[in-house]
Computed example of a mutant assay.
Amino acid sequence: MSLNSAHEWAPPGVDPEQPSVARVHDALLGGTENFASDRSVARKLKDAVPEVVNLVWCSRAFLGRVVDFLVREAGIRQIVDLGAGLPTVENTHEVAQFADPRCRVVYVDVDPMVEPHARALLSGNPNADAITADVRDVPSVLRHPALTRLIDLTQPTALLAVGLLHLLSDREDPHGLVKRYVTALAPGSYVATSNFMASPSPKAKALEVLLQATMGTPRFRERAELTGFFDGLVPVEPGVVHLPEWHPDERIPGPLAPWEELLLGGVARKPYA
């Protein structure tokens, strides 16, 4: 049932008056699993930064290239996607299982709407599942029965935190959070992250102010802060870069557009010794 119906039906535990990151993201992508409150935020974002839809798709493309690299080049066969959001096109499991149908994927999100919609999409797929959990509670995530059924943490695993960390304030210690997940991963595992980049550009400032006013997030960060998420890990070339610069499908034609400079991302490997 579409949430765009007149009465905007909401499942138990979901407040339709309170916008969520997952549903605003869905609205920006043109999806239907969102409420009027989410669409209102999406409209404000597009009014302030018209390129925000391009930015969302840019992040989506980065995620796809990362997953393809992890499976085809790094040999990873199990993936935990933190803060996965609502299902859309070219989902993590689709990209991974296109490269190798044996890949196992678990989606994690705190929004209670994500799990049922993801499971509907994953019906008949024994190698993928979704759970509702707060990514800040590392034990609850990693000990969840749906995760332990598919993911063997004694084997190399990919941890995706794409579009997630800028939602966490400094007092929530996102660097410590990443470290706790990394500690639980086997050597040879990979971590992928992205974050809005702190910048004096008017577009960056407008986006940051509006997101903080409407969603209470995000925390734009300097390049050195994002590089710090990979402390103790071995960066994958080209390191922490603007998303279009990370393993582009084609050579980047000339300078990046201003909106393409709003997000940084990278991938790193946990060493064996």
Results as ranks from 00 to 15, higher is better:
D129P: 03
S199M: 03
G83S: 07
D170L: 12
D47F: 02
R223L: 12
P258C: 10
R23A: 12
Y107G: 13
P112M: 09
G265N: 06
E250D: 11
P255M: 11
I252H: 04
R39V: 01
Q78T: 09
D173F: 06
V21C: 05
L29F: 08
R23F: 06
Q212L: 10
L153Y: 12
L226E: 03
A133F: 01
H242V: 10
Y272D: 15
T32I: 04
L243Y: 06
D170A: 15
T157F: 13
T154G: 14
R143V: 00
F196W: 15
T132A: 13
G216E: 08
L45V: 00
P16H: 06
R269V: 02
A192N: 11
V53T: 15
G13M: 04
R219K: 14
P126I: 07
V14M: 13
G31H: 03
A204K: 07
V162P: 02
P50D: 05
P156E: 08
P12K: 07
Y272Q: 09
M197H: 15
E17V: 01
A10Q: 08
G265D: 03
R180F: 00
F220A: 13
E208T: 06
F196C: 03
A161Y: 09
P50A: 04
G216Y: 02
R119C: 14
L122C: 13
P16W: 01
D134W: 00
Y272H: 15
A204E: 08
V209P: 00
L264G: 04
A84Q: 02
V105W: 02
A10T: 09
D68S: 15
G13D: 05
L264F: 00
D134A: 05
P244E: 10
L263N: 04
P202A: 14
I252N: 14
L28A: 05
S140Y: 00
D249Q: 07
R223S: 02
K205M: 14
F62I: 01
D134I: 02
L177R: 01
V21Y: 08
S59C: 08
A213E: 15
C103S: 14
D47P: 01
Y272M: 08
D170M: 05
E90W: 13
A22M: 09
V141T: 09
K203S: 12
R43W: 03
G188K: 12
S194Q: 11
R219C: 06
P112K: 02
G163E: 12
H144D: 15
D109M: 10
K270W: 05
D111I: 04
L207Q: 09
W9Q: 06
C58T: 14
L29G: 03
L262V: 11
H25W: 15
Q212G: 06
P174T: 14
P87L: 12
D111F: 06
V108I: 10
K270Q: 12
D47W: 02
V110S: 12
T132E: 11
V105K: 03
S123H: 11
E172H: 09
T157R: 12
V191D: 03
E8W: 07
L45T: 00
D109R: 10
D68T: 09
T217M: 13
V110F: 01
E73Y: 00
E94P: 01
L29A: 13
T88G: 12
K44S: 11
R171I: 01
V71T: 05
G266A: 04
